[in-house]
């Protein structure tokens, strides 16, 4: 029952991701490389979900020296690496966005006021 659910769930999820990727590709929001990468990745996920014995086949292909646990562990480490890379990239983007907003804030609403204050202070100092 659980196996059937996981198969249906994987197919639905893959369908959603691939169709979203296709829509973005058509709208030129996504490059052809990214579209192909996501499509192949999710097709692979569906294939493994439909035929889980492929994992055993891959383990045997590797000489049977690694177990399913090791295989899953490696997948987990790879996923964590991807999450970390995304975190770093997201933070870099956040910093760029911060720079733009700071610049806009100082230019649009602040800098003129600051210059005004500067003029007032200079006049005040000159008076003294």
């Amino acid at each position: 029952m659980f196996l059937l659910f996981s198969k249906i769930f994987s197919i639905v999820l893959a369908g959603v991701v691939i169709s979203k990727s296709y829509v973005d590709f058509r709208a030129r929001k996504e490059s052809v490389q990214m579209f192909l990468l996501w499509t192949m990745t999710w097709i692979a996920v569906v294939v493994v979900a439909l035929f889980p014995n492929i994992v055993d086949f891959l383990i045997e292909l590797g000489g049977g020296r690694i177990g399913v646990g090791t295989f899953l562990g490696m997948a987990l480490v790879f996923n964590l690496f991807l999450v970390y890379r995304m975190y770093v990239r997201m933070e870099a983007l956040q910093q760029k966005m911060t720079m733009v907003i700071q610049e806009l804030a100082l230019t649009a609403s602040g800098r003129e006021g600051i210059r005004e204050t500067q003029r007032e202070l200079t006049a005040d100092r000159d008076r003294r």
Binding site: M97, T98, I101, Q102, L104, A105, L106, A108, S109, G110, G113, I114, T117
Partner: peptide
């Protein structure tokens, strides 16, 4: 006070 405004919450 002098006010400097961010367009969005950072």
């Amino acid at each position: 006070a002098r006010v400097v405004r961010h367009l969005t919450n950072l």
